[in-house]
């Protein structure tokens, strides 16, 4: 059976060329905006890899990974990234020991216990904490926290990973608490009611039902906190001493990957020298670390995606 369909289009229904062009133009603008971020990322990776490649022409990868000294500016140059990595890991660990428990507790309080009024007052303050410039935190660590810590530990040097890490932890608290709280508040009320109806207390409901339901969001918050700690620069440059030091003892001074990069970038090393190229190798290391954390984060989000 064949059916006959009209082949002409009435003027009121015909396609308008101007509308079509306008749509194309808007699409192009949107694509351009998205492309900028992709292009930037690719460009950064390209520069890092290219300069690092030059660096590794002179320094074998095994030295980079396993040498226990970092003295690129000395005559007897050593390029053991472990030294900077130890500083980064130690200061980050100190920061996370503060930020993760406190951030989580604050999130539980704000999401499950605080009244509307308390939350409305407390949240802006918390967000302010995240808005303080990190250089201010650095001086806070150096001029206030370190002297206080020296009363408790008289042997503590003027610059230490401990002092920088503690302040960094305070800086990260709002990132952890705010994202965790968002995740917990997004848990539907019906789940909480189900828990209360079984005779659970508020704390049992928060810990046994709301937190498991918000696992993926809370994991994202932790990963963001870790990334912030690993990438933080100014606090460590100001308060941790910038002395490359292979140690996991937070009461010692140390340099981190980021603070080393600041040190070299601000110095007057000639472009193209090996000393200068070290910062690209260090930068690449840092980027790979953050990439790993992001992958872990993505995996956690997928594994514990909201199931309510």
């Amino acid at each position: 059976m064949t059916i006959s369909l009209p082949v002409t289009v009435s003027p009121r229904l015909s396609k308008k060329a101007s509308r079509h062009l306008k749509e194309r133009f808007i699409e192009f603008l949107l694509f351009g905006a998205a492309a900028i971020s992709v292009f930037t990322t690719v460009a950064i990776v390209y520069v890092l890899v290219k300069e690092s490649w030059n660096f590794f022409q002179h320094v074998p990868l095994s030295d980079f990974l396993f040498d226990t000294q970092w003295t690129p500016l000395f005559d007897d140059a050593h390029y053991g990234i472990m030294v900077l990595l130890s500083g980064t890991l130690t200061s980050s660990a100190v920061a996370l020991v503060i930020a993760i428990p406190l951030g989580t507790i604050i999130a539980i309080y704000l999401s499950e216990f605080a009244s509307f009024r308390v939350r409305e007052i407390a949240k802006p303050f918390l967000e302010l904490l995240g808005g303080v410039p990190t250089i201010v935190y650095g001086y806070f660590a150096l001029t206030l926290l370190t002297p206080v810590l020296q009363i408790l530990f008289p042997d503590l040097p003027g610059f230490s990973l401990l002092s920088a890490g503690l302040v960094m932890g305070i800086m990260i608290i709002p990132y952890v608490s705010s994202l965790s709280e968002d995740a917990m508040r997004a848990v539907p009320m019906s789940l909480r009611e189900g828990s209360y109806a079984m005779g659970a207390t508020r704390f049992q409901t928060a810990v046994k039902v709301v937190m498991p339901a918000a696992t993926s969001g809370i994991a994202s918050a932790y990963i963001l906190g870790i990334s912030r700690a690993v990438g933080e620069t100014m606090i460590l440059a100001v308060a941790a001493g910038m002395q490359p030091n292979l140690t996991f003892n937070p009461t010692e001074p140390g340099a981190t990957i980021t603070s080393y990069i600041v040190q070299v970038a601000l110095g007057d090393l000639p472009h193209g020298s090996i000393g200068y190229q070290t910062i690209f190798a260090a930068g690449l290391t840092l980027m790979l670390m953050t990439l790993v954390f992001n992958l872990i984060g993505a995996w956690l989000r997928k594994k514990y995606r909201e199931v309510y």
Partner: peptide, 10 residues
């Protein structure tokens, strides 16, 4: 209590 919409815990 049993609710309107099934609300199993995660």
């Amino acid at each position: 209590m049993v609710f309107q919409k099934p609300n199993p815990f995660p």
